[in-house]
């Protein structure tokens, strides 16, 4: 891939540039020369990002290549959202963006400027579990628990979207969330119960 090294060239260019040298001198917190170059070059490669996660506003600086999933897990340390495939093929990374369920592994973090993200950590109301969380426990809608946050986030939207009218429809509209332990029938039961309960989600 001939283009792959371009970024490194740009970094080298940045390191050598006088603008960078000036910045280095101007910054009192940066002391070691080599390290300074690295940190400042990194700054050039990042861009500002404002978003809200579980009701908390964040003003961040991120590389454009960082996915929403990796931002949540590795930078905000919200490990509830899971990485199962990293390619939009399993649903473990499902979160809500402005109320819609999406695969956070295929969304660049910078594409979520100004958006409201809800993860599994933001679903419960304090210690009071969300009805879907309650239903997953009651119907044992999981075993190992790894796909569970994605299943629950997806399930909440499945009901909200109006795709939980019968078992067959739920199965189809929950097929974007793979559960290798095979808890599917229990997941369907959990969603049916929440749908029947009619609580506001």
């Amino acid at each position: 891939m001939p283009t792959q090294n371009k970024n490194e060239s740009r970094r080298d260019f940045l390191k050598k540039s006088t603008a960078l040298a000036a910045l280095t001198i101007a910054s009192p917190v940066l002391t070691k020369a080599g390290e300074n170059d690295e940190k400042i070059a990194a700054l050039f490669e990042q861009m500002p990002l404002r978003l809200e996660v579980n009701g908390v506003a964040h003003a961040l600086s991120v590389e454009p290549r960082v996915t929403l999933l990796d931002l949540l897990r590795e930078q905000l340390h919200l490990m509830g959202t899971k990485k199962g495939c990293d390619h939009g093929q399993c649903g473990a990374c499902t979160v809500h963006v402005d109320g819609k369920r999406i695969n956070s592994c295929l969304s660049l973090a910078v594409m979520n400027e100004g958006k409201k993200i809800t993860t599994i950590e933001g679903l419960a109301n304090g210690d009071k579990l969300h009805p879907m969380q309650e239903a997953f426990i009651k119907h044992d809608g999981f075993q190992c628990g790894y796909c569970t946050p994605g299943q629950i986030m997806s399930a909440v939207c499945c009901v909200k979207e109006g795709h939980a009218n019968n078992a067959e429809e739920i199965r189809e509209f929950m097929s974007g969330n793979i559960c290798r332990c095979g808890a599917y029938p229990n997941i369907v039961d959990a969603i049916m119960e929440v749908k029947k309960g009619g609580q506001s989600l």
Binding site: T3, T67, G88, L106, M111
Partner: peptide, 22 residues
């Protein structure tokens, strides 16, 4: 151009395409 990104981001992760600008 990037819109939903569901295919493009995947292709970029796999190294199939490596645009310098999105």
């Amino acid at each position: 151009f990037i819109a939903g990104g569901t295919n493009l981001v995947d292709l970029m992760k796999k190294g199939v395409t490596s645009p310098e600008k999105l």
